[in-house]
């Protein structure tokens, strides 16, 4: 009960925040503008290009958003009033992870669907090609966002300050999420491997964050 309630609360907080509003409009706009400004992307469909771009930029923003949010709340002792109530401490983290992940995913979906529409108009792609392109882009985006979000949660829990947290995100979570794309980029792996790897890594990161959060005296 508490997880669902906390998730609804966090969602309520995030989707109306200024950062999220900027993302929902800014992310699709930024991806499309960058596409049209880039001369040569070797015949890559807009949908795929936007998918990669959105997962990279969106992933970074997601992890920064989560890290800053958790560290600010930790520093201000916001969690004390939750901890004195009968809830599982990790539910606070899971609710935050799920809310931010969902919000950024919606922003990414908007960008990718917009790109797919442009592909179909400019390149004359059929429905089947469009769906294939969208599904690949969405899978990449979801995978990278999941890793970035969960890494953001873990860094938020153990990091001593916002500055350290953001640096760790820049040099840690973003690189980690890129690693799972290697099998696909090098050509020896499949998309399902990327998805599986990202689920596993995200689970491990969240599990670690939950254990730390439960044991830590904040």
């Amino acid at each position: 009960m508490s997880l669902w309630m906390l998730f609804k609360d966090e969602l309520n907080g995030f989707y109306r925040s200024k950062v999220m509003l900027a993302l929902w409009v800014g992310l699709p706009a930024m991806a499309l503008v960058l596409y049209f400004l880039t001369d040569d992307i070797e015949g890559m469909p807009i949908t795929m290009f936007v998918g990669l771009l959105v997962s990279s930029i969106g992933g970074l923003l997601t992890s920064v958003l989560i890290v800053v949010n958790i560290l600010n709340e930790k520093e201000r002792k916001v969690y004390d009033l939750f901890f004195v109530r009968p809830i599982r401490r990790e539910n606070l983290l899971l609710a935050k992870f799920a809310a931010v992940f969902l919000c950024v995913m919606i922003a990414s979906f908007i960008a990718i669907f917009l790109a797919a529409f442009l592909d179909s108009v400019t390149e004359g792609y059929g429905v089947r090609e469009m769906l294939s392109s969208i599904s690949d882009s969405l899978l990449i985006t979801i995978s990278l966002m999941a890793i970035n979000s969960s890494a953001g949660v873990l860094i938020g829990v153990f990091s001593p300050s916002v500055l350290v947290g953001v640096l760790l995100v820049l040099f840690g979570s973003n690189q980690l999420s890129s690693l799972v794309l290697l099998p696909m980029i090098t050509g020896w792996g499949e998309m399902w491997m990327v998805a599986l790897a990202s689920i596993g890594i995200s689970f491990l990161l969240l599990f670690g964050a939950s254990i730390l959060f439960d044991r830590k005296e904040l």
Binding site: S2, G13, S17, L81, R85, P86
Partner: peptide
């Protein structure tokens, strides 16, 4: 137990009603 910390810190995006509602339900 009811607890009031030295400085009350709540999630800033909440309204007073939203904060009290969540704490009440969680209690």
């Amino acid at each position: 137990i009811g607890y009031l910390p030295q400085q009350t810190s709540l999630q800033e995006w909440r309204t007073v009603d939203q904060s009290l509602h969540t704490f009440g339900r969680l209690s």
